[in-house]
Design a binder for these strands. Structure first.
Lengths: 146, 146
DNA sequence: GTGCAGATGCAATTCGGTTGCGTCCCGCTC
DNA sequence: GAGCGGGACGCAACCGAATTGCATCTGCAC
C-alpha cells in the first residue's frame, strides 16, 4: 500500500498535475491526500488516509474530510458507503464512469474496485423513477481472509 | 406506509407467527417492530421505525436496535447501508435471497426494494476472492421527487 | 406457580462526520 | 517583488447514529 515517508514522488507529481488541471488551488494537504489515494491499491477509509499521511505533513482531520469532499466533487475520487457505516475513497482511475463494482471483504473490511463488470445492469425501476447511478457491491472474503 | 395507531392486526399476527416460527421468544417490542416492517412499502431507517411505533407501545431506542439486529440475524429482515450513513431495514419478502437490488432517491432518501433484477451475477473477482453476497444499489430520483 | 435464561430499559459512551470561526496562504495584480 | 483578497486550513465544539454496561423484568418451560 505504500509507505507515507517513502511515497513515490511520481504520485505527488501526478496529484499536483490533477489538482492543477481541475483548476484548483494547489496546497500541501490536497497534494498529500490525493497522492495517498493514487498510491493506494484499494479503497481507503478516512482513518487509513489520515494515518497514511501522518508522518509527513500533519494534516487536520477536518481538512482531510474537506479535501476528500472536494476531490469527490471534482470527480478525482469517488466514495463508497461501506457496511461499517464509513466512507471509503478511491482515486478515479479515469473519467470513464461506467457502472461501478466494488468488492468488500466481510471479515477485514478491505474494499477494492472491480474493473469491467461484464453485466450491463438493465435494472427495472418502478414507473416514474429516474435512475442516475448504479452501484454494485459484492460482499465476501478477500484472498488473505479466505 | 400505514398508521401506527391503526396498524393492520393482520401484520401483527403475521409478525408473531414469524417470530414464533424462528424459535424466538415472543415479546411486544419484537412483534411491534416486525409488524412495522411488514407494513412498510419501503426500507425504513431506525428513526422512522421508532416513530412509526411510538403511539402504541413505547419501545426503547436501544431495544429497537437490538430487535432489528436480531431480525436481520434470523433472516426475517435485511439492512441496507445508505448514502447518508444510516441503516435502512426491510422485512425479507421471502427466503429467496437472490441478488438483491435497491433504489435510493438521492433527494428524499427513500429506499425501496427492486424486485426481479435481470442481473446475471457474473462479476469478475480477483483470484482467491470468495464472493458471498451481491448488492445492487441504484441511485436516482423517485417518482415524487422527479 | 416458580425459576431462570434471555430480553428490556436506562444512562453513559463511542465514533464518524460536520460546523463555526479566526487565521493563514495561494495566486492574481500591479 | 510587495500587496491584497478570497479561498483553504486548523482548532474546538458539536451532532446524531449506533453501541455498551448493568440492573431489572418477563416469556415460557417445567
Amino acid at each position: 500500500m505504500g509507505n507515507a515517508t517513502l511515497r513515490p514522488p511520481a504520485k505527488a507529481a501526478a496529484a499536483q498535475r490533477l489538482i492543477r488541471a481541475a483548476g484548483e488551488r494547489l496546497t500541501a494537504p490536497r497534494t498529500a491526500v490525493l497522492a495517498v489515494l493514487l498510491d493506494a491499491k484499494r479503497a481507503l477509509t478516512h482513518h487509513e488516509i489520515e494515518s497514511a499521511l501522518a508522518p509527513g505533513v500533519p494534516v487536520d482531520r477536518v481538512t482531510v474530510y474537506r479535501v476528500l469532499d472536494r476531490l469527490v466533487t471534482l470527480g478525482l475520487a469517488h466514495r463508497i458507503p461501506g457496511e461499517d457505516r464509513t466512507w471509503r475513497y478511491v482515486a478515479s482511475r479515469d473519467s470513464s464512469h461506467g457502472p461501478h463494482a466494488h468488492f468488500t471483504c466481510s471479515r477485514c473490511g478491505k474494499t477494492v474496485c472491480l474493473e469491467a463488470v461484464a453485466t450491463p445492469p438493465d435494472v427495472k425501476v418502478p414507473r416514474g423513477f429516474l435512475p442516475q447511478k448504479v452501484e454494485l457491491t459484492v460482499q465476501g472474503l478477500c484472498a488473505s481472509c479466505h
